[in-house]
Design a protein around this nucleic acid. Sequence first.
RNA 1: GCGCCUGUAGCUCAGGGGAUAGAGCAACUGCCUUCUAAGCAGUGGGCCGCAGGUUCGAUUCCUGCCAGGCGCGCCA
Length: 561
Amino acid sequence: MAEDVRREIRAAVANAIASSELAAQVGEYQTHEVPVEFARDKSYGDFATTVAMLLAKRLGRPPRQVAEVIAASLKSAVGKTRYIRRVEVAGAGFINFFLSRAWLEETIRAVHAAGPAYGRSDVGRGKRVQLEFVSANPTGPMNVVNARAAAVGAALANVLEAVGYDVSTEYYINDAGNQVAVLGESVELRYRQLQGENVEFPERCYQGLYIMDIAREAAAEHGERLKTMAPAERARFFREFALSRMLESQKRSLARFGVGFDVWFSERKLVESGAHQEVLRILRERGMVYEKDGATWLCSTKFGDDKDRVLVKSDGEYTYLAGDIAYHKNKLDRGFDLIIDIWGPDHHGHVVPTRAGIQALGYPGECLEVLLLQFLSILSGGERVKMSKRAGEFVTMDELVDEVGRDAARYFMLMRNIESHLDFDLELAKRQSQENPVYYVQYAHARICSIFRQAEENGVKFEGAASADLSRLEEEIELDIARKIAAYPDEVVTSAADRAPNRLAKYALDLAGLFHSFYNSCRVMSDDAGLTSARLALSGAVGIVLRNCLGILGISAPEKM
RNA sequence: GCGCCUGUAGCUCAGGGGAUAGAGCAACUGCCUUCUAAGCAGUGGGCCGCAGGUUCGAUUCCUGCCAGGCGCGCCA
């Protein structure tokens, strides 16, 4: 709906310029060059254009004067338009448009007609996007930092999908590195301690209690067998046992948090496929590597890096970077147009080398986009909880879900923009759980459902928005709500384009606020059947938009609270 | 030293080349015989870190400085 209106305004403005005295100087002015935005405040009308300010320089005339000329030219055409009723010049040279309320009524009908599809669009044009996130090492339980990545990644996937991208989500299982060996060793040592052996538990091993739990499970399930195993065989057993238990536990935590992935990609399988050798072969062929000090170096400085990077160490082992390049080559070969990775800020130094790697292989650098998601600190008892996997000290994803609840936890993670540090005070989140913003939004949805339940019980027939006489909506707050709803599809597009799910979290809060305000000042159900069905149509539309918006954020929209 | 992120109300943070800079929490005052008070209405509270620059216009963009966080391996 808003798009139809904008189209009309753009065309009218372009015509007005063409038929004014400015035409000679401005030349051909394309419709799409006219910026049309929602008016900041309703006293400025429904929409505004800043075109006069933009043209002022080219014309060498004050913006305000340019605006007056365009507005004068517009005024003669206003009568012929479908929506524009009044035009005025304000401020530094804004041209404000006051529209017929028909556009708001049509918006409400459009929401009902589209239902779950309202807010969806096709700006992504089916472009294939791969989104990789969380990808935690399988050496400990999912923690709150992973939770932020999970919430953000899932919401981003949803919002990209909503605007027409073909999205595939992926979790990279780091099951090939040295840390898996250490994990196995840690469990094995705990097992031996449980058997009464007096062995030392080194600092480099994982100290967390969960290691002990896995050791106990191993003893319970395979106790006898383990005693007779050869050392090498037993080490291998513990590595595999610990790895599979950790992965199971991580998947279970993610599932409880409501986050799933289309693809679980194993690093080990990548290694076994010979992808690393293949990458080196191609890079050699392309002259992108050289030997020095017994190591093989990538010429990453050719692609903007400040130094070249080692791909194969002098001991013959591949570096982390070599693996990352091989993995990204694999992604690109799967046919994605865009690869988006969500990494922690501690990996920002890897962005340029990794991109250099794929460029050295011959892929365009723009096909990799890395989002650096800032960490989250947990405050407990006013103190920052030190989080260290090795020390086994951290707040887990499971604890967060248990204590704060899934919806609240996810909403909190999404409220801030991704590059902001976030202090999450556990006590505060628990204590304020009644006043959490997420409840505020969900409560609005539950209230709407309650109204419809009530209507049914009272035998009030709601025939749908199409047949309701929406001109009965005369209160200011009712029209404010309609305007807010009209802006929703735009909000989704911006949220996707800026990779900023927090915008939708804010939008949901604002819309819920408008609805609560409406609810307190206007009765939906009354003796006036016409007014009742108009207000039911409005309330129903709010319900649909809240549902769609919460759906993208990965938060439930309860019918009762 | 170099790089990335941050600096907006007492607190936690939104916003963003434009028209009077917002929300929640905290404080205070009112509102439940009526569709859920997990709600609403109202009050107070701001050199948008500092200094320059670009611009018709900067809190927003650029540069420098100050402050905080993080990172800078032939570790992963």
